[in-house]
């Protein structure tokens, strides 16, 4: 019956994740409004716009779906799906309790990262098939950013994997049991900082949202999309950010571990939300970097720093024999 369990769990996870993604837009709008001394959504769902996401979804569904004449139809229609599915697949590997993940696998962290990177495919397919120079440039920027920032991201994630001696997310969480908040002494914080910056760059959040630089590129790779397909890209983006927040919460913040007055999954979701709010905080605090500055930051600072950090972590593991 383990397949039935996995199926039920996956349906639950997808339903919860998609609802979360819808409400993340509401959270983002409310928090963005607070950062700008505004109120944000208010009237739809009276006290504080609780029903705004539902209204948005209803609106997007009834919107006209335009397919431009000169697009590559197959890729054009496939791209929104390609953008959402890998992001949702990421949730499959996050353990909600020991053994409570949709996919329990000894290399779950690697699988997660592989699927997280696949989001790129949808974006690039959209940019390429749209037959629009702005969309194409935007998706090329996305590729440049992702190829660059993937390296410090992976090197930063190698540190917890190295210390826990495993790529299994459950084991990495269990390794953090008894460790002080925000992980391993010294090395972990640097690793988390690198990971966080690289995450911002990978999920195209400000200050690295170069792919949607309105002044240069109109909007982004999704210029030619309308209605629900357009919304799927947004859902994919939020799902991706939330999944990466889940990875950060699992690998660095102790995942489902927490004081016993709340159950493990609640702790995990709270930590994910905390990371998400941190992303928003950064987003509304900084200006967009120029593309060469963004790449220089990666190659000149983050990449060497993450290498040094990994070496220090390896030295720590060897001397302490933690693995």
């Amino acid at each position: 019956m383990s397949w039935l369990f996995a199926a039920l769990l996956s349906v639950t996870v997808i339903a919860v994740a998609m609802t979360c993604v819808a409400y993340l837009t509401w959270i983002e709008r409310k928090i963005a409004a607070r950062f700008q001394n505004r109120i944000g959504p208010y009237f739809v769902g009276y006290p504080h716009g609780w029903l705004q996401p539902l209204a948005d979804v209803a609106k997007l569904i009834v919107k006209e779906d335009i397919t431009p004449r000169d697009v590559d139809r197959v890729l054009y229609n496939l791209a929104p799906v390609l953008a959402v599915v890998p992001a949702l697949l990421g949730f499959a590997f996050i353990p909600f309790l020991p053994g409570w993940a949709v996919v329990v696998h000894p290399y779950s962290m690697l699988f997660f990262l592989a699927f997280a990177s696949l989001t790129l495919l949808g974006v690039f397919a959209a940019g390429w098939s749209s037959n629009n120079k702005y969309a194409l440039i935007s998706s090329l920027r996305m590729v440049a950013m992702l190829v660059s920032y993937e390296i410090p991201l992976l090197l930063a994630l190698m540190v917890p994997a190295l210390m826990a001696g495993s790529f299994n997310l459950v084991e990495i969480v269990e390794f953090q049991r008894g460790l002080p908040f925000l992980l391993y002494p010294g090395i972990g914080q640097v690793s988390f900082a690198i990971f966080f910056i690289a995450t911002l760059a990978e999920s195209n959040k400000s200050p690295f949202d170069l792919i949607e630089a309105e002044s240069e590129l109109i909007a982004a790779y999704n210029v030619e999309y309308t209605g629900m397909k357009f919304a799927l890209f947004y859902a994919g983006e939020y799902a991706h950010t939330f999944a990466i927040s889940g990875l950060a919460a699992t690998v660095f913040l102790g995942g489902y571990l927490g004081p016993a007055f709340l159950p493990g999954p609640v702790w995990l979701v709270l930590k994910m939300l905390a990371v998400f709010v941190l992303v928003l905080w950064v987003r509304w605090s900084f200006l967009r970097l120029r593309i060469d500055h963004a790449l220089a930051l990666n190659w000149k600072i983050l990449f060497p720093l993450s290498l040094v950090n990994l070496l220090v972590a390896a030295w720590w593991v060897v001397t302490r024999g933690a693995a």
Binding site: I31, R34, F35, Q36, N37, R38, I39, W281, W284
Partner: peptide
């Protein structure tokens, strides 16, 4: 400057909204 910027947004987060419904 980065931390300064984040501090500014943090302070504004707790200020009263200047807009009205």
């Amino acid at each position: 400057g980065s931390f300064n910027a984040m501090g500014t947004t943090f302070r504004n987060f707790f200020r009263r909204a200047t807009t009205i419904q």
